[in-house]
C-alpha cells in the first residue's frame, strides 16, 4: 500500500509539472469549469422561478442532489481521467505497450498516471452546493457516516463504466466514443428520476446506473427513506459493475495486439 501511495505521489507531481507549463491557460480553464457549473445553477434558478416545486422537490433539495452528483463525478475526473486516453489513442497507436513492460499492474498504472486538476472546479462547486443546501437534510451521526461511505462507492460506478468501455479498445482499437456515450448519461443523474419516462429510469438505474451516483443516495439523505434500496443498491451495483469492468479489462489485455510502428 505504501508503494502504491508513493507511486501515486510521483505520478501526480510529474503531471502537475506538465500542466503548469501552460499556467495561464490552466487557470482560465479552471475558471471556465467553475463558470459552467454556475451557469447550470442559474438554469435551475430560472426553472424554479416558474414553479415552486419540481415533481415534488424544492429548489434546495434539487441543489443538494446536484451538489452530491458533482462529488463522485469530480473525484473520478480528478484521479482516473487517463482511461479516456486508452480508448482514444493509447491502444490504436500501440503506446499501450509501455504499460505492459512496467513492473506494476497495467490498470493501476493507467489509473494513476494523470491527475486532472481541472476537476477541482467540479469538486469545489459540489462542496459549495452541499454546504448551501445542507440545512434541508436532517443530519444524524449515522447519516454523516453513511454519506462518507457512499462517496467512494458512487465514484467507483463512474470509474467502472470507464474501465469497461475503454477496455473495448483492446478489440476495436478505438472506443472513446463508446465511453463518451455511456458517460453522457450522467446528466440524467442530477435530477429526480421521477421526471423521466420508464425506459430512461430503467436504464439509469440498472444498465448505466448513474442514478445511484447521485439521485438515489441523495434522496436517502433528504428523506431518510428506503435506505436498503438507495444506499444498499449503491453498494451492490458499484461492486458488481467494478467486478465486471475489471473482468472485461483483463480479458481485453489478453487479446491486445500492439498496433502502429
Amino acid at each position: 500500500m505504501r508503494r502504491v501511495l508513493h507511486l501515486e505521489k510521483i505520478f501526480i507531481s510529474q503531471y502537475l509539472k506538465q500542466t503548469m507549463e501552460y499556467k495561464a491557460d490552466f487557470i482560465v480553464g479552471v475558471l471556465g469549469v467553475l463558470l459552467n457549473q454556475v451557469l447550470n445553477l442559474i438554469f435551475l434558478q430560472v426553472i424554479f422561478s416558474q414553479v415552486p416545486k419540481l415533481a415534488g422537490w424544492s429548489l434546495q433539495q434539487i441543489v443538494f442532489i446536484y451538489g452530491f452528483a458533482l462529488i463522485p463525478k469530480g473525484l473520478d475526473h480528478l484521479f482516473f481521467d487517463n482511461l479516456w486516453i486508452v480508448g482514444q489513442k493509447l491502444v490504436r497507436k500501440g503506446e499501450f505497450d509501455k504499460y505492459l513492460t512496467r513492473p506494476i499492474n497495467p490498470l493501476f498504472h493507467v489509473l494513476v498516471e494523470t491527475f486532472q486538476v481541472d476537476a477541482f472546479g467540479e469538486l469545489l462547486v459540489g462542496v459549495i452546493l452541499l454546504v448551501m443546501s445542507s440545512a434541508t437534510v436532517h443530519w444524524t451521526l449515522l447519516k454523516v457516516i453513511l454519506f462518507i461511505v457512499s462517496i467512494p462507492f458512487a465514484t467507483a460506478i463512474y470509474t467502472a463504466l470507464k474501465i469497461g468501455t475503454s477496455a473495448a479498445a483492446f478489440w476495436m482499437k478505438k472506443s472513446n466514443t463508446i465511453t463518451y456515450l455511456f458517460y453522457m448519461f450522467n446528466d440524467f443523474a442530477k435530477y429526480p428520476v421521477s421526471i423521466f419516462n420508464h425506459l430512461i429510469r430503467w436504464i439509469i438505474s440498472f444498465i448505466i446506473p448513474f442514478a445511484f451516483t447521485a439521485f438515489y443516495p441523495a434522496s436517502y439523505f433528504l428523506t431518510g427513506k428506503n435506505v436498503l434500496f438507495n444506499l444498499g443498491g449503491l453498494v451492490v451495483i458499484s461492486i458488481v459493475f467494478l467486478f465486471i469492468a475489471i473482468k472485461i479489462w483483463n480479458k481485453g489485455i489478453s487479446s491486445y495486439e500492439s498496433a502502429g510502428s
Partner: peptide, 13 residues
C-alpha cells in the same frame, strides 16, 4: 496563451 484548452472551456460556457 500557447495552449487553448482553458480559454476554450471558458468561451464555450
Amino acid at each position: 496563451f500557447r495552449n487553448l484548452w482553458g480559454s476554450n472551456v471558458l468561451k464555450n460556457a
